[in-house]
């Protein structure tokens, strides 16, 4: 089953974030706790970690884009 890695809630007043950098590409194998992307809010830069082991099936947004909380960043297979 595919697992979506999403932009988490980062504070009550944060509604969006910029995807600063992807650390993975489609086909990469990741282990639970690996950082898959860095996103930046107006207040901080946050590394988004994979919650489980798997392979990156898709990268769903572009680097440099501004995305809403809850947006899927990438998908694990």
């Amino acid at each position: 089953m595919a697992t979506r890695i999403v932009v988490p809630q980062l504070g009550n007043e944060i509604t969006e974030a910029e995807v600063t950098e992807f650390h993975v590409a489609v086909g990469d194998t990741v282990v639970e706790g690996d950082a898959v992307a860095t996103i930046t809010t107006t207040k901080m830069a946050v590394e988004i970690e994979t919650p489980e082991n798997g392979e990156i099936a898709s990268v769903d947004v572009e680097e440099g884009s501004i995305v809403k909380i809850g947006t899927t960043l990438c998908t694990l297979s």
């Binding site: 969006e16 974030a17 910029e18 930046t40 809010t41 107006t42 207040k43 501004i66």
Partner: peptide
């Protein structure tokens, strides 16, 4: 502008 794209008070 989004605050990610324009100078904010911070």
């Amino acid at each position: 502008h989004s605050p990610l794209r324009a100078v904010t008070l911070r």
